[in-house]
Nucleic acid binder design. Sequence first.
DNA 1: CCTTGTTAGTTACAAATCCAACCATTACCA
DNA 2: TGGTAATGGTTGGATTTGTAACTAACAAGG
Lengths: 145, 145
Amino acid sequence: MVEKDDFDLQNFLPYLLNQAAEESSLEFQQVYKNKYGILRTEWRVLFHLGAFGEMTASTIVTRARIHKTKISRAVQKLVEKRFVARERSEDDRRQEFLRLTPLGLAAYKDLREVAAAYDRTLEAKFSEEEVALLRAMLRRLGERG
Amino acid sequence: MVEKDDFDLQNFLPYLLNQAAEESSLEFQQVYKNKYGILRTEWRVLFHLGAFGEMTASTIVTRARIHKTKISRAVQKLVEKRFVARERSEDDRRQEFLRLTPLGLAAYKDLREVAAAYDRTLEAKFSEEEVALLRAMLRRLGERG
DNA sequence: CCTTGTTAGTTACAAATCCAACCATTACCA
DNA sequence: TGGTAATGGTTGGATTTGTAACTAACAAGG
């Protein structure tokens, strides 16, 4: 019989963070997957372009901290689906600007509403002050380093 | 030109949770990967067995909310590495009990120390009350439903 | 110019994941 | 009993991911 001990896995922050992150992503994931047939990385790209406007792939890489091969493939899929258009820069022909097509914009606007509504249901579990503190702490924990 | 808008992706809780979870897993991940050559799911199985003692694969599935094929394959790897031993139940021969070998126990104990130390560095970013609240909120967000 | 180094983005191949179908065993129940 | 359903766990094949190597374009120094 292997001994038990007192290390509390249930209190290990990375564990708690992962469980909460997974659970909180699940419901929303179903929506964009079923409704638009896109995956998480594609959703993230879509949202970055929708929320911040035209930008290059490497800007998304930096801001979202997703590996560039994932971005590259997500962009390909979004272009195939006619959600995103690419345009090569004249200044520096290595980079290309990405922006949402009208179709992509419509999808984004729809999903943004769903996301905002879902966020409200999560917020509703706590008081305003608690939510504000939670966000601040998560931001701090998410900083690189 | 695609319009910008005011949806604040940076405040979207699932997004913040994912960023924090990823960042907080990264450093510890390097340790168990480099030191013992195991992946995240294998680490989770190891920790469940170490922290709670002998149990079946499906118990881990339920408790850790990881898909059973992932568990199945992680257990295979851990058995290959001689970290885990399986023993078929006499009562119900479909299920088999899993427990750590002395080798697995040693790895667990080592990693538990690393995990605890790492947890303390995360905690150190905040006050005690804040950490307690964070844990409570994460637990709440991680509940299924 | 020419070399060397850097950056933007893609691709190839191996490893890991997901989903569905699949045994084997046990439970239910007419 | 016998037939059907449910459970524990594994396997196969398509999809995704990770890592590294790659192309193409620019930058900087001689």
